[in-house]
Simulated assay, not measured.
Amino acid sequence: MQFDQVTIVQTTLAAVMQQQQRLAEHLWWGGVVGNSGAEAGLLEQELSLLVAVANGEIERESAGVARYFEIKGVLNDVCSLLWQAPLSVEPVIPAEFWTQPGIGVVCGAVLAWLDADDLITITEAARLLYPDAPLVGSNVATQRVLRLIASGKLREYMANAEVAPNPRHRRRVKRSEVLLLCNISTELDTSNDQE
């Protein structure tokens, strides 16, 4: 197989330049580099919105559908700027980012805000994943869920203080991700039974 050097160089340079242009547009208002005006750049506006959500300044129940999707789009945009490589289709976000001090924790709080209807406690997840938990002990089942979080099979979210005043009870996971794991383990058990 012979590679076309000109095409590969041109398409790669175009992808990198497009990513750089996108970043420049976010850093400076209107894409004008070095704009010293008082108007905030797009990225600054987006980060301010995410911090406002994380600080509880925008209530989920009263936000409305348009505001919800605006915030979701801003979160996706910021995560793409931070983690998407020029030639990739989706950003590759490491699991530890969501608990990283600063922007990671803010983005994690916004994600929890967006997914609030789908979040359950670690104890609830343990009950779903391990229905035999009363037999082996609920603490054992809870530790299993914590291991799933540590291994990256479940993403952890933190509920805000209004939902869970006790910091130890703020840890959450997505019900949909837990149910997916339940289906996977049920399918594995069924296939093992058939063998």
Rank of each mutant, 00 (worst) to 15 (best):
V9P: 01
V9S: 08
T11C: 01
T12Y: 11
T12G: 12
Q18I: 01
Q18T: 15
Q20H: 10
Q20A: 14
Q21I: 10
Q21S: 06
R22S: 11
R22P: 00
E25D: 12
H26R: 13
W28F: 15
W29A: 14
W29S: 12
G30R: 00
V32P: 03
A38H: 09
G41A: 07
L42P: 00
Q45K: 13
Q45F: 00
Q45S: 08
E46L: 05
E46S: 13
L47R: 14
S48W: 04
L50M: 13
N55F: 00
G56N: 10
G56K: 10
G56F: 06
E57F: 03
I58W: 06
E61M: 04
V65A: 08
V65Y: 04
A66M: 10
A66Y: 06
R67D: 09
R67L: 10
F69L: 05
E70H: 13
V74N: 03
V74E: 02
V74W: 09
L75S: 02
L75A: 09
L75P: 02
L75D: 02
N76I: 00
D77R: 15
D77M: 06
C79M: 15
C79Q: 11
L82E: 12
L82V: 13
L87R: 14
S88L: 09
S88P: 00
P91V: 09
V92D: 14
A95K: 09
F97L: 06
F97P: 01
Q100H: 11
Q100V: 05
P101T: 12
G102Y: 08
I103L: 15
G104E: 08
C107S: 14
G108N: 07
A109K: 15
V110M: 08
A112H: 05
L114S: 06
A116C: 01
A116F: 03
D117C: 04
L119R: 06
I120D: 08
I120V: 13
T121C: 02
T121H: 02
T121G: 13
I122N: 03
R127Q: 13
R127A: 12
R127C: 03
P131Q: 06
D132T: 03
D132Y: 03
D132I: 00
P134H: 02
G137I: 04
N139R: 13
N139M: 08
Q143H: 07
Q143G: 02
R144Q: 09
V145E: 07
L146H: 09
A150V: 01
A150E: 14
A150S: 12
G152A: 05
K153Y: 05
K153F: 06
L154D: 05
L154F: 02
L154V: 10
L154E: 07
R155A: 09
E156S: 14
E156V: 09
M158E: 13
M158P: 00
N160I: 02
E162V: 07
A164P: 03
P165W: 01
P167G: 00
R168Y: 05
R170T: 06
R171W: 03
R172L: 11
V173I: 08
R175M: 11
E177L: 01
V178F: 13
L181W: 07
L181Y: 05
C182P: 02
N183H: 14
N183Q: 15
S185Q: 15
S185I: 04
E187M: 11
E187S: 14
L188S: 12
D189K: 11
T190V: 07
T190A: 15
N192D: 08
D193S: 15
Q194F: 07
Q194V: 08
E195H: 08
